[in-house]
């Protein structure tokens, strides 16, 4: 089960979310100053934030390359349960039989409970407080991270118990 890509899929998601969080620093900062005159347009980028954005973009590209290689390898080894890189339905669902469907449903219920509370709570915070754009993005990413973490830990707990 450790080799099952569906089990590690949430970990990949969390890694992508962390890189997006770093990327957001670059995208939301005022590192780009556009100065326009009658005859010229100058764009100035601050070195640190520009570097953060560039490094995050590179990290994202590297991670997505590794992810696609790992996914291709998994699909070659498991032709009967291939995972599409671009499916709408989350590929981490494990529903090969009724027992696995049962634990997947339990994990999804926990995630649903988390989302039910965290999203409205976050919306209220953003409405009431003058939250900068970066913190709004981080908040959304934190909820997405939490969703994946809850799902992964719940599935791992059940599968660990089954292995004992």
């Amino acid at each position: 089960m450790k080799q099952d890509f569906r089990m590690t899929y949430s970990l990949w998601n969390m890694a992508f979310i962390l890189i997006l969080a770093v990327m957001a620093v670059g995208f939301t900062s005022s590192f780009v100053n556009v100065t326009k005159t009658d005859s010229s347009l100058s764009i100035e980028a601050q070195a640190f934030e520009g570097f953060v954005l560039f490094a995050a973009l590179m990290a994202y590209l590297v991670l997505i390359t590794i992810y696609l290689i790992a996914l291709g390898s998994y699909n070659r080894k498991n032709p009967d349960k291939k995972i599409s890189a671009f499916s709408i339905r989350p590929p981490e669902y494990m529903e090969q039989d009724e027992g696995m469907t049962f634990i997947t449903r339990k994990a999804v219920q926990k995630v649903y409970t988390f989302i039910t509370w965290s999203l409205p709570f976050f919306a209220v915070v953003v409405m009431l407080a003058p939250v900068p754009k970066l913190l709004i993005i981080w908040g959304i990413l934190a909820i997405a991270f939490g969703q994946n973490l809850i799902y992964y830990l719940e599935m791992r707990r059940h599968l660990k118990e089954a292995a004992e």
Binding site: Q96, E98, G99, F102, I103, H158, L159, A162, A163
Partner: peptide
Amino acid sequence: VDVTRQTIAFIEKGEFSPS
């Protein structure tokens, strides 16, 4: 019985009631 090893384990532990 055409299920995974994990499902047998869940049943044995009483964690899951089979159909």
